[in-house]
Amino acid sequence: MVRLVTRRLVWAVPMLFVVTFFSFVLVSLVPGDPARSVLGQLATEQQVSELRQELGLDRPILPQYLDWLGRALRGDLGHSLVTGGDVGRLMGARLAPTLSLVVLATLAAGLLGVGLGMLSAVRGGALGRLIDVLSVAGLAVPGFWLGLLFVSWFAVHWRLFPATGYTPIAESPIGWLRSLVLPVAAASLAAATAVAKQTRDAVLDVLSREYVRVFEANGLSRRSILFRHVLRNAAVPIISLLGVVCAGLLGAAVLIENIFGLPGIGSGAVVAAMQHDIPVLQGAVVSFTLIVIAVGLVVDLLQAWLDPRVRTR
């Protein structure tokens, strides 16, 4: 287990370097001028040029990145070019809404998908075909479109949930949950269909094995076989898919957070991109990359716990 964790962490270091370097270069090449964003359209060219020199934006891209990297290795992600705020504190303040959305959406997709998949595997027939149809439809329907529909139905028409905004859990657990119901539903429904199909296929594969028929012949109850033996052996590919789903939800969070007005890292990255605020964008990239690395590590640990053969790979 220690070897598995060490290998994952060793691979995380070059991943961070590669991701941050390419994001820095790509953002620097995007048309726009942060100095002009700070000073406004009425500022003179001389004022803009002086601010660019003061911020170090007149230097080549590689020295700018190396300076940022040197500070980041010391734990300093810099300051916003537009507001002057500390990027580390800004990401920390925006982390809770993003994690709340991603974690709850992953749990919802997992619970709903595994439940439907197991039901489809046991019952089969029309339900199995319905899962296939829903899985294809789930991949075709974008989450932001579902989000707009949910706002129209459940927030505007029926007024069951707030359309926008976020309530911290420390302030009101009920308000926190209500503010996340619609975003989580929009983000998780498409993923739940993919999890359902993967679960059904994995459970059917395990049900066809010889030892399951031995259990049935020995008189074990159907429920005991399903939950104590079949689901555990089918869980490895399901957990792998949930890891992919969780990472994919980070990308979906950029749109979902903007639709529902959640003050998360994704919505902050969109504003930073429009303002060409490179330090804030880099902070968002680092945050997302660290979350993906953590998700991958958790998936590896769960798989190793369920299947000891994973530890030797």
Rank of each mutant, 00 (worst) to 15 (best):
Leu29Gln: 14
Val10His: 07
Ser23Val: 13
Ala304Glu: 05
Asp86His: 02
Leu112Arg: 10
Ser120Ala: 12
Leu127Ile: 05
Val27Ser: 14
Asp132Asn: 09
Val298Gly: 02
Gly110Asn: 01
Gln46Leu: 15
Pro31Asp: 06
Gly125Thr: 04
Pro173Ala: 11
Trp68Gly: 02
Ile265Arg: 08
Gly88Cys: 08
Ile259Pro: 04
Trp176His: 04
Ile61Pro: 10
His229Cys: 08
Ser208Gln: 08
Ser100Trp: 05
Gly113Leu: 06
Ser135Cys: 13
Gly32Asn: 01
Gln282Ala: 03
Leu39Cys: 00
Val82Ser: 04
Val103Ile: 12
Gln47Phe: 08
Gly110Met: 10
Ala202Phe: 09
Leu111Lys: 11
Ile278Ala: 04
Gly219Thr: 03
Asn258Met: 13
Val25His: 06
Val151Arg: 09
Leu146Glu: 09
Leu149Gln: 10
Leu104Phe: 09
Leu220Ser: 07
Ala155His: 11
Leu116Phe: 13
Ser179Phe: 08
Val2Gln: 15
Gly251Ala: 02
Arg209Asn: 15
Leu189His: 13
Gly124Met: 04
Val82Glu: 01
Arg232Ser: 12
Ala202Ser: 04
Gly32Ser: 11
Arg59Gln: 05
Val136Gln: 09
Ile239Pro: 07
Val10Ile: 14
Arg228Gln: 14
Val151Gly: 10
Phe150Trp: 11
Leu111Asp: 05
Leu306Ser: 08
Ala269Ser: 05
Ser80Leu: 03
Leu112Phe: 07
Leu55Cys: 06
Val19Tyr: 05
Ala140Glu: 11
Ala186Thr: 06
Leu204Gln: 13
Val299Gln: 03
Leu101Lys: 00
Val236Ile: 02
Leu204Glu: 15
Ile225Thr: 02
Val295Ile: 10
Val280Asp: 03
Gly175Trp: 15
Arg313Ile: 11
Ser80Ile: 05
Pro142Phe: 07
Ala108Ser: 13
